[in-house]
Design a protein around this nucleic acid. Sequence first.
RNA 1: GGCGCGGUAGCUCAGCUGGUUAGAGCGCUCGACUCAUAAUCGAGAGGUCGGGAGUUCAAGUCUCCCCCACGCCA
Length: 570
Amino acid sequence: MARHLITSAIPYINGIKHLGNLVGSQLPADLFARYQRGRGHEVLFLCATDEHGTPAELAAAKAGKPVAEYCEEMHDVQAKIADGFNLSFDHFGRSSSAQNHKLTQHFAGRLADQGLIREVTETQMYSHEDGRFLPDRYIEGTCPNCGFEEARGDQCDNCGKLLDPTDLIDPYSTVSGSKDLEERETKHLYLRQSEMRGKLADWIDSKKDWPILTTSIAQKWLNDGDGLQDRGITRDLDWGIAVKKGENDWPGMEGKVFYVWFDAPIEYIACSQEWVDAGKGTDWERWWRTDKGADDVTYTQFMGKDNVPFHTLSFPATIFGADEDWKLVDYIKSFNYLNYDGGQFSTSRGRGVFMDQALEILPADYWRWWLLANAPESSDSEFTWEQFQSIVNKDLADVLGNFVSRVTKFCRSKFGEAVPEGGDYGPAELALTDDIAARVKAYEKHMDAMEVRKSAAELRAIWTAGNEYLQTVAPWSTFKEDPDTAAIQIRLALNLIRLYAVLSKPFIPDASAQMLAAMHTDDDSWPDDVSAALHMFQSGHEFTVPDITFRKITDAERDEWQEKFAGKRT
RNA sequence: GGCGCGGUAGCUCAGCUGGUUAGAGCGCUCGACUCAUAAUCGAGAGGUCGGGAGUUCAAGUCUCCCCCACGCCA
């Protein structure tokens, strides 16, 4: 039995994520976790909310709540939605947890001990009214280059010129609108990533089997311009993890917190401590410490392409730099973006479908299937309602759902609601068994390689094989002259329903559960031996004709939803 | 402007280290079947692989140039 540690990039706390975010990390990670569990392997699947940083503070202020309270509420909202999508996290943690505070401070201390932290004094804009330093993009003013009055502190959106906040004429805070700004010197810690460039480059170079998307992004950051740059790991904020050197104070860094990108990935580890502290597990170190049993763990991370630099370089720099026995990632599966109907999903414009809205109009399985079967693996991909409707109706309702329906209803009408007796499998049944066995092997190969779209295609082909078989042997015909032969055929078909439920569980867990329930079984063991699996139900085994497994999406619904989620275009 | 990823049948996409008539699903046409959610199964018609040049016995698949879309960065 292998051991798989699986993490999904942790979603930011300020709001509900859209389907593009879902398919980029949490959903494929869940697919892989469910598959590995299905194969009988030991899995620890972790995710969390990413709660620190200025956007969280501003979102809380907008909601009129203390930031801690806001984060707690939003964490619960996101947890419920994740649950609604059947994301099977062993624990859904929080980067603001006590465990992460302590661990982040520990890493910072280790890095300092190794000489990998340097202090930098820089000038930033301080807003008296807001009582805080403002990130560049939260300062606006008149562009000195083109006169545009709403140029941001980092760049003018009108002429494109790159700016420093201090360049702006009449700068003001976009948080409060205040013009009472002042340049102040402030000291920050930088992680000396440049020191580790060689080590990181060697490590990335050794990962020949990683997706091109993953390695090409890493290479770019390693080699672009002057190469990998040192990065600030602290901010002048109230909300976050206090800057400490392990358990000790950090002279000169009082009142500062770690920058969100530094503490967020450490939450992957802290999350496993939360998992233990929540009573769900007993030993987190055997997943994370190679000196304490984690050397046989396979660690896989899932993320959208925007997160690749942090996972290929920054977080590994932290791990390498700490020079302790931490488990390093073995495989990084990254995804491109999902576009929405000819453009991008847009949170600010309300364009596209968000996770809560998706669940309001259709059950999770419908979304899971479409999203995974069309996952943006090799390039950005496109969501259109027409495509969604046709895929869902064809694959789920017609090919799989109708198979369950035709088999159970035929049996009920001719033999009753129990597996019929008589005869034994003949050549046609053996041929189907061989065909499916080969396809299951192909399915496993694709799933092992995290080839999401190919896995979906193979699974669909397995469903289709059942319909092909029925069409060929035609039990409705054989029943007329030779009921025993029809009994053999329908017995095999009933066994196929259970087999399909097991194989499909990673993609469509609810439908899988419904199928197993209809077949009056909870045996979802993986069909390592397809022939044996297709002999499981013997004559007399009772079942119940289930309700429709998947309904169809009507043209009217499709048009209505297309209109509803179009958002405001500008 | 630089970099990255793409540009393959009407649509969404596969095509690894170059090698027989370029593939899948959907859609479309025709046929079969009637157990089933007007479902299923089969057959067929549709691409010369963004454009151009080159390397090679052989290129969608390697090289160079150009065009287009998207993304990132400065």
